[in-house]
Amino acid sequence: MPVIQTQNWLYQFVELCEKQSGKGASLIQREVISDPIMKLFPHINSQACQYELLRHGLFDPNEWLTLKDKVKEMETQNVWQVVKEEYKMLRRLWDGPKVPIYIFPIKKVSSKFGEQIPNKNGVAYRKALFLFLSTELAREEIKALLAHEYNHVCRLSYLDLSPEKISLKDSLIIEGLGEYAVKDLYGEKWLGPWSNLYSLRDAIELWKEHFIPSLDVKGVKNHHHFLFGKDRSPLPKWIGYYIGYQIVNTFQKNRGPFRHNELYSKSSKEIIAGSDFPINK
């Protein structure tokens, strides 16, 4: 079944934690949540798999006391059914691959200095898709997140490259296509908050100075500062996501309209060449 019934895993996790009064909650999470997923990632161990999931938003093991109520509320909201139905529609629309989808509550994060607390996140691999959700999401937000992440799965399948061989230009287009899919299907209301952070003019200047010389840099791990900016990077926050989206958006305006999976099977080079972000300075 494409949408895995992870609520059963979550109830099992809580039950085992209750029996042990929460002792060893991290180990229990690894055994109940990470171990069944290990078959998808044969080159890493269970602990590394758990770390990867936690890094992207999986609930903290110590949240077991409140987890049952969250899962029940997600069931009341028909989260698993909503994802199942939307996935079927997206797969038909894009002629996409079949992948398992894992849904978990997102970790509770305390706000610092008025920062916005994330209430959803997702991560896509060629062989699996993960959604980390709060109980406060509108149905459309869940659909938009799924579309963004499943579009990544489709694009990764089209590229057929290992993470180490994906170039920066490919990473930008992967993110741009994912967010354009949200706009195309659900409207601008559900775009990420970074979609209007900058002016096109400022973004193009940053593109010329920082991105063009590095478009062929390979390895997804080497693209993070281009995508996310800030920290020790001279680039502003989320600039790569903004640029990726605007490349796809302006390509569609300049060369489109393209329908559904027609757009998602264009090469990164072609999309960039037809956008407002020229390769030549």
Rank of each mutant, 00 (worst) to 15 (best):
M74C: 02
M74R: 05
M74Q: 15
M74N: 05
E75N: 12
E75S: 08
T76W: 02
T76I: 11
T76M: 10
T76D: 12
Q77N: 12
N78F: 03
N78D: 15
N78E: 15
V79K: 03
V79H: 00
V79I: 15
W80N: 09
W80H: 12
Q81P: 00
Q81D: 11
Q81K: 15
Q81F: 03
V82R: 03
V82A: 01
V83H: 01
K84Y: 05
K84C: 02
K84H: 04
E85S: 03
E85K: 01
E85H: 01
E86F: 03
Y87Q: 02
Y87P: 00
Y87S: 01
Y87C: 01
K88M: 10
K88C: 04
K88N: 13
M89F: 06
M89H: 06
R91Q: 14
R91C: 08
R91D: 02
R92P: 00
R92D: 10
R92E: 14
R92F: 01
L93A: 08
L93S: 06
W94M: 14
W94S: 04
W94P: 00
W94L: 15
W94C: 10
D95C: 02
G96S: 11
P97Q: 09
P97D: 08
K98N: 12
V99L: 06
V99D: 10
V99Q: 08
P100Q: 12
I101H: 10
I101L: 14
I101C: 09
I101Q: 10
Y102Q: 08
Y102F: 14
I103Q: 04
I103W: 03
I103C: 02
F104T: 03
P105R: 09
P105Y: 05
I106Q: 03
K107F: 00
K107I: 08
K108Q: 13
K108G: 01
K108L: 11
K108I: 09
K108H: 07
V109E: 10
V109C: 00
V109K: 07
V109T: 15
S110R: 09
S110Y: 00
S111G: 11
S111N: 10
K112S: 14
F113I: 03
F113T: 06
G114T: 12
E115H: 10
E115S: 14
E115I: 13
Q116A: 13
Q116E: 13
Q116M: 08
I117T: 15
I117Y: 02
P118N: 09
P118T: 11
P118F: 09
N119H: 11
N119C: 09
K120S: 14
K120D: 06
N121D: 14
N121M: 07
N121R: 06
G122Q: 08
G122A: 08
G122K: 03
G122H: 04
V123P: 03
A124I: 11
Y125G: 05
Y125V: 07
Y125N: 06
K127G: 09
K127E: 15
K127L: 04
K127W: 01
K127H: 12
A128F: 07
L129M: 14
L129P: 05
L129W: 04
L129G: 11
L129C: 15
F130L: 07
F130D: 04
F132Q: 11
F132K: 06
F132W: 06
L133W: 06
L133V: 08
S134D: 14
T135G: 05
T135W: 00
T135I: 13
E136P: 00
E136H: 10
E136F: 06
E136D: 15
L137I: 07
L137W: 04
A138S: 12
A138I: 09
A138G: 11
A138Y: 08
